[in-house]
């Protein structure tokens, strides 16, 4: 395949970036999007140019490290797929492809396509945990969990924290990420002790990080490589109301 890439190049956080055009040739339709970028980078290195920096790790679609807004869509055109699992056969031969980093005030560009997603880590630190006594693992059946709750919690726990929801949101909100964490932990008996503190503290950290507010446009859920449904945001809102207006948050 022959393609024209328009890639965001920015050498440092302080520098003003710009889109740079790169033609690439002989790309296998079976290559992943990241492998295609590897081919480009090998050529750039051979030519003595600076390779394009992009985030990646497992390349199996489970680590949440890869990103990229491809032709205006986070993780590219295929639904429920991370960039590393996206194959070049999804593109037309000769296509012009725009490649940009996640755009959010909370996600400053580190270099080229790499952004700093540590605000998501700070949100987790402020409430995305449970208090558990250490020691030998308890008998698995000692804490019964209704099957439906376990399934819903598991679906929410599929969130890999990649930040595509923020990148897709017209408001730059991380509500889907927040909702996934609050739902995942709030549905389980182990998550109950911190349930009301969690939602208040995580939302506070979210807002302080400079993310926008949710207006229920639904773009997040479509962009989510794990297909997390927007009903987790309803649960987030419900828990937030119960914790604040409902006075459930005590500490």
């Amino acid at each position: 395949m022959k393609l024209t890439l328009r890639i965001w190049r920015q050498s440092s956080p302080a520098e003003k970036g710009r889109m740079v055009e790169y033609p690439v040739e002989d790309i296998s339709p079976d290559a992943s999007f990241l492998e295609m970028l590897d081919v480009l980078n090998e050529k750039l290195i051979a030519d003595g140019e600076e390779p394009v920096a992009f985030d990646h790790d497992c390349r199996e679609g489970i680590c949440g490290m890869c990103s990229l807004v491809i032709n205006g869509t986070p993780h590219g055109p295929e639904r429920n797929t991370t960039t590393c699992q996206l194959h070049m056969r999804k593109f037309e031969d000769g296509e012009v492809i725009d490649v940009e980093p996640w755009r959010a005030k909370a996600f400053p560009v580190v270099k080229d396509l790499v952004v700093d997603r540590s605000p998501l880590d700070r949100i987790i630190q402020s409430g995305g945990y449970i208090s558990a006594p250490t020691g030998t693992a308890p008998e698995a059946h000692s804490v019964p969990v209704p099957k439906a709750d376990a399934d819903r919690a598991f679906e929410a726990a599929e969130c890999i924290g990649c930040g595509a929801c923020v990148a897709a949101c017209p408001n730059g909100s991380a509500a889907l990420f927040l909702g996934a964490k609050v739902t995942h932990l709030g549905l389980m008996p182990q998550g109950q002790p911190e349930r009301w503190d969690r939602v208040v503290n995580m939302l506070e950290t979210h807002d302080d990080a400079g993310f926008g507010g949710c207006t229920n446009t639904g773009e997040c859920s479509v962009a989510c490589p794990k297909g997390i449904s927007m009903d987790v945001i309803s649960r987030l809102n419900g828990d937030m109301l119960k914790a604040s207006v409902g006075g459930k948050k005590k500490r």
Binding site: M19, G72, D98, K105, A106, G172, S173, G210, E219
Partner: peptide, 24 residues
């Protein structure tokens, strides 16, 4: 208005590619 202002502040650098909507 406050949601719109927050939205504007949350994305200071806009996307170059044409905005695509896939939802609702």
């Amino acid at each position: 208005v406050s949601l719109a202002r927050r939205a504007r502040a949350a994305r200071p650098v806009k996307y170059e590619a044409k905005k695509k909507s896939h939802a609702h």
